[in-house]
Amino acid sequence: MRPFDYQRPAAPEAACQGMSASPHAAYIGGGTNLIDLMKLGVMAPDLLVDVNRLGFDTIKDLDDGVEIGATVRNSDLADDPRIRVRWPVLSRALLAGASAQLRNKATTAGNLLQRTRCPYFQDIDVPCNKRKPGSGCAALGGELRNHAILGTSEHCVAAHPSDMAVAMQALDAQVVIRDADGQTRTMGLDHFYRTPGDTPHIETRLNPADLITGVRLPAPLGDRQVYRKVRDRASYAFALVSAAAVMQLKEGRIEYAAIAFGGLGTQPWRDPKVDALLTGARPSEALFEKAGDVLLRSAELREGLEFKKPLAHRVLKAVLTEATQ
């Protein structure tokens, strides 16, 4: 870690002010990802603004939804009775992620913003366009396993590692952002992330001093909710493939479908074409097969990642089957 200053403001204004003081400042919530990367020399902020005592640690009821405070811990979010009952896919996704210790620390906003597990990103001795713009991508031609097959570019194949964000993507979550001037805006999670293109170091549409204050979940549009995660050991591992499904059935037809994926995309992945294909249709094996074809129509299967296509296909089919049974 490079030396840094540390501030623990008590109000959002002060936090934004602190952030504006240095171009290399960073907010710190749980720190489970940031401190990890700082120790490796991957990230080197000169100022940490601790957002843990700004009062964003509760889950508030909205008209028909909730607003999850930015620093609500992953474990508390998973445990919340409202989430367990109405948004169980989110509880499930959270509980499938990391370990109990990490979930006790990791925050809602931090989870959205966590960086990729690409081993080349984490290795300061090799080129990485995400870590050092323009330096090249050591992962290309390297050993790929936990990498993306959707949304990639010739500059970056890193996958977004979150489970929570996959469920939120399927739940049409809205990120609540306070800007440097104190103005609040919301941004759909579907719009929040950027595909890597030729600027893989810019991962979201946040502006420098923007502060995430919470995440809004609208009322769930489907009561059939499933999260499934496949990984290399039974627990405490990142997803090779995961899928979140939120669906509603009516008179034997799929009235609503929102499917999102982890481990496949450069961001928590949701493809409107998949949802559109399913919506209004009768559940069938053929339909689910086709959904997989649509999802993976433009998958880039680089060497080492070939397995993800059939795996994603099968996982999607299983999840859709479970959600429509």
Binding site: Y6, I28, G30, G31, T32, I35, D36, K39, L40, L48, R73, S75, S99, A100, Q101, L102, N104, K105
Partner: peptide
Amino acid sequence: HGQCGACTVIADGRRINSCLTL
């Protein structure tokens, strides 16, 4: 780096990885 749990302590009643927090 929060990958083994050997550093687990209980902070304000919660178990956490003490290596990944300042």
